[in-house]
Design a binder for these strands. Structure first.
Lengths: 239, 239
DNA sequence: CGCCTAGTTGACTTATATCAAACCGCGTGG
DNA sequence: CCACGCGGTTTGATATAAGTCAACTAGGCG
């Protein structure tokens, strides 16, 4: 498993320059951040943080996908967040982290040691403001997901997840047809953990959606959605 | 249904002075807030915001309990947040709200029109900082709840809800025995909507917990928990 | 007094979990 | 080069937790 070495030299080149926690910074603020940032890479499957560990650093996902999970003592797992490029991980003003953070694909992180970053939040308003904005968005997403977990059927859950991934991925390369193609960044097991289902149920519903022509795939991970609107109609969100 | 008229004259008297969005403010900042604040009351059952409506104001719960809910077109409802005194409602920098907000009991709100409040966030750092802190806490709570919704059994869900209410209410009057008594601020239906269950299942599990001696009640809403640790053991969170 | 809402309880159905087996692509070592 | 094992996935048979439908109780209020 090869770890890509960071090639980014300055924040100007950074692929997440305009949506990460630093996106509102003016050049001067950016300079402050630049002085304390450093990069880290994780291979797919590696754990970035263990729940309960002291939180030494925070940071942004530059590339790749990570998951946030919570686990019950008997081993039941629930994914509680999916972090894509630009998303922030860690929690200022908290000594420990309460979720496991796992790299689902190879991941590159732009990190800041927590203490200096907390100082920056207090001193450079645009970082704190952007972080508030991002946290509010995440809260909205978490609440949206509570509806999925609490009230949707297995089929609706799968359709919702696929639709979300399709649109979030698509938003990176905008060009918008009714169609979408993407590679699932996660295993069936991870999907199950996200959706509060078993992997067997995930598999059955994927097969059912395929049989119904709503999605297509041969290789297990390469999904084609011929008609995003039709998939959306399966999420239960349409009247 | 009688609406209590606000009796609070200044922020100094305010019951949520030290845990609301204003809690980090120094006297000068408080003065800025005081100039734009106003009070509103809602009777139990009234809707404060309808999902999708323009968001004219934001504010803090001074007293009472409100719920945040999301609804699917076919009528399925999921509660996605429970707001207790001190909690903040509304969303700066967003023109509409995406949840219904309902007063579960009589509620008093300390409100700010949204635009002036947004200006305050930008100008008085302690408000933005506190709001970030509160939003991060809410995000943690939402994630905790995703675990409940996705992976817990009906009994564990009920136990989790009762335990949470017991401890959150208890924290107001700290004195900590192993025992707790409280009045449920919500109906069985609201409980069901919070937990992603039907009201019949809620009722059955309440009866089961009662039969097992984990809770006691005659009047449907006045709950006594003889042993909080024993209740906690039913939440699935204990090894 | 009778209706209305909130809650409880029972009988039955069903969606999803559980248990079990087999499949498929892939890298490894004989 | 092929057999093997392995992780990830699919599919089938069965079990069960929770949902549905329905009847009934108990307060509260006009």
């Amino acid at each position: 498993m090869s770890l890509s070495v960071p090639k980014i030299r300055s924040c100007e080149d950074c692929p997440i320059r305009y949506n990460a926690v630093c996106s509102k910074c003016d050049p001067e603020e950016l300079q402050d951040l630049e002085e304390i940032k450093y990069y880290r890479s994780y291979a797919a499957g590696q754990t970035v943080f263990f729940g309960g560990d002291p939180l030494e650093f925070v940071g942004s996902i530059v590339s790749g996908v990570s998951s946030l999970t919570r686990t019950l003592p008997d081993g039941r797992i629930q994914m509680v967040g999916l972090l894509l490029p630009g998303d922030f991980m860690g929690r200022p003003n908290r000594d420990t982290i309460d979720c496991d953070v796992v790299a689902e694909t190879d991941v590159m992180l732009c990190c800041f040691r927590r203490k200096p970053f907390e100082r920056i939040i207090d001193e450079t308003p645009h970082v704190g403001q952007r972080l508030l904005e991002m946290t509010l968005d995440e809260l909205d997403a978490a609440r949206e997901w509570m509806l999925v977990l609490g009230r949707k059927t297995a089929r609706e859950k799968i359709a919702s997840l696929l639709h979300m991934i399709a649109t979030r991925m698509a938003s990176l390369k905008p060009g918008e047809t009714a169609e979408a193609t993407f590679t699932l960044p996660i295993t069936r097991e991870t999907m199950a953990n996200y959706l509060g289902l078993t992997i067997e149920t995930v598999s059955r519903q994927m097969s059912a959606l395929k049989k119904d022509g709503l999605i297509a795939f041969d290789e297990r991970r390469d999904i084609r959605v011929p008609d995003l609107a039709a998939l959306k109609a399966e999420t239960g969100e349409i009247a």
